[in-house]
Simulated scan of single mutants.
Amino acid sequence: MPDQMATPGTPEQTAEAPPSKEVAGFYNDLSGLLTELFGGSLHEGYWRSPDDPATMAEASRQLTDLLTEKLQVKPGDRVLDLGCGSGAPSIRLARTTGAQVVGITNSAVQIEAAVRNGQEAGLGDRVSFICADATVLDFEAESFDAVLMIESIFHLPDRLGALREVARVLRPGGRVALTDLLDLDPAPAPMEQAVGDLAEHSREQGHAALVAKPVRLEEYSSLLEQAGLVLVERNDVTEHTVAPTLACLRQRLADDHAELVRTYGGQVVRQYESVLPLLEKAGFGYGVVVAAAPSGRDEHLA
Rank of each mutant, 00 (worst) to 15 (best):
L253C: 06
P214S: 03
L198G: 14
V211K: 09
R252S: 09
S222Q: 06
Y272D: 02
R252L: 05
D236W: 12
A212C: 15
E219D: 11
E218Q: 03
L278N: 07
D236N: 12
E239N: 08
E225K: 13
A208M: 00
E239C: 06
S274V: 07
Y272N: 01
L198S: 06
V215K: 05
S221K: 05
R203T: 06
V269N: 12
Y264L: 02
P277K: 00
L246W: 07
E204G: 09
L229F: 13
A243L: 08
C248Q: 11
T263E: 12
V261R: 04
T238E: 00
E219Q: 11
V211F: 10
R234A: 14
Q205M: 13
E239L: 12
H257S: 06
K213L: 09
E204F: 14
Q271W: 11
V195F: 03
E200Y: 10
V269Y: 07
V275A: 04
A254F: 11
C248G: 10
L276C: 01
R252G: 09
E225Q: 09
L224W: 06
E225G: 15
A243Y: 03
Q226T: 09
Q193R: 13
A243T: 11
S221I: 15
D256W: 07
V211D: 01
G266Q: 12
V232R: 05
G206R: 00
P277A: 02
T245I: 15
L253P: 15
S202Q: 03
T241N: 03
A209T: 15
E225H: 15
A227K: 06
L224R: 00
R250A: 12
R270Q: 11
L210R: 06
E219M: 12
L217E: 02
G228Q: 01
E204M: 08
H207P: 04
D256R: 04
Q193G: 08
A208T: 13
A199W: 11
V195L: 13
Q271G: 05
A208G: 13
Q267V: 10
V232Y: 04
Y220L: 01
N235C: 13
A194E: 02
V232C: 05
A258Q: 15
G228Y: 05
H257I: 04
H240I: 10
Q251T: 14
H240S: 08
T238K: 00
E219N: 07
A243G: 01
H201I: 05
E219I: 07
L223R: 14
L246G: 08
A212S: 15
